[in-house]
Design a protein around this nucleic acid. Structure first.
Length: 302
DNA sequence: GTCCAGGCAGTGC
DNA sequence: GCACTGCATGGA
């Protein structure tokens, strides 16, 4: 064990507690472990398995490498990864200015102060997670993800806890529909995931490919060209992985419920009112979605 | 048994 | 383009 540390300065309007809260909601996510006030996560960097612990230390996030080499390359990768995961690169003050000016959501600037849009930087994982979650309840979705990861992903163990890495596309492209159906995936979900895995494995789809496209609409088109990726999934992925500020998962049940709770809409068919709302948040649409999702949990916890 | 869940593809107009 | 339909699968 080496226990080398990386210290990342905490920016303004950043709350590690809100990160912890989000990652430790009522769901059983298999891709990280929360113990005390620390996050444990396994990553695969160039074929090497790295286990890290992230916790708050005064004005820093302390990233400790518990397994794997603390090479300069790995430390640079991990620093970049944490910045990206917790969206620490830029100020969210302009978003807060909009919330306060709006009034309807001004309370969020205190209630969820410092909450950042927690991302999924692995594009393949982000798409698979969407396909898993399509049209089923979230707790079942997390169960399906856990079965998939435990069946096909690599894992590491420390102090009696097991840590998983999301399966590589090359692995899942070699799986067959029946193997996924055996772990309660529907026929369609199984077909979609294997199809997407094939697209990644043969190079037809990658994060770099999307990033190299000229604009938002061409990225969306490149995503929805694949079976299993509709408008909702494309926007979710653009929001959580590519961090497109304009990514709005239109039609999302949780989003609609949150808008209804805030009396923005009365039923689910008022696209005009939703558009008008997001028009006020240009450049911060995906942040507003994330904060609206955050607002849903208050009742759950009560 | 019914309704719903962080939808999608296919069809018809 | 838009509305409608069938599809899946588990949980409340």
């Amino acid at each position: 064990m080496n226990n080398e540390r990386i210290l990342i300065p905490i920016p303004a309007l950043f709350s590690f507690d809100e990160c912890l809260w989000f990652l430790n909601r009522n769901y059983d996510d298999c891709l990280h472990v929360i113990k005390g006030n620390a996050i444990f996560k396994t990553l695969e960097i160039g074929g090497e398995v790295i286990l890290i612990r992230i916790r708050e230390k005064a004005a820093f996030l302390e990233v400790t490498i518990l397994q794997g080499r603390a090479s300069a390359e790995n430390k640079a990768y991990l620093t970049d990864y944490v910045f990206e995961w917790f969206d620490m690169r830029h100020s969210i003050q302009p978003f807060y200015d909009l919330l306060i000016a709006d009034g309807r959501f001004a309370y969020m600037t205190e209630a969820y102060k410092g909450l950042r849009l927690i991302g999924i930087s692995n594009l393949f994982e982000a798409i698979c997670w969407c396909i898993i979650g399509q049209q089923i309840n979230l707790s079942f979705a997390y169960k399906l993800k856990r079965r998939l990861v435990e069946r096909f992903g690599i894992e590491t163990e420390q102090d009696g806890d097991v840590y998983h890495v999301f399966p590589a596309a090359e692995i899942l492209s070699a799986a067959n529909v029946d193997e996924l159906k055996a772990i309660q995936f529907s026929q369609k979900k199984a077909e979609y995931i294997i199809g997407i895995a094939n697209a990644f494995a043969n190079g037809a789809l990658s994060k770099k490919f999307l990033l190299d496209l000229p604009d938002f609409d061409s990225r969306k088109k490149a995503l929805t060209d694949h079976k299993g990726i509709g408008i909702w999934t494309a926007n979710y992925v653009l929001m959580k992985c590519l961090r497109e500020p304009g990514g709005i998962p239109h039609g999302d049940v949780g989003l609609l419920n949150a808008l209804s709770n805030h009396d923005i809409i009365k039923d689910r068919g008022e696209a005009g009112k939703i558009q008008a709302l997001f028009d006020q948040y240009q450049g911060w649409e995906s942040y507003l979605v994330f904060y609206l999702w955050r607002s849903l949990a208050v009742k759950d916890l009560a």
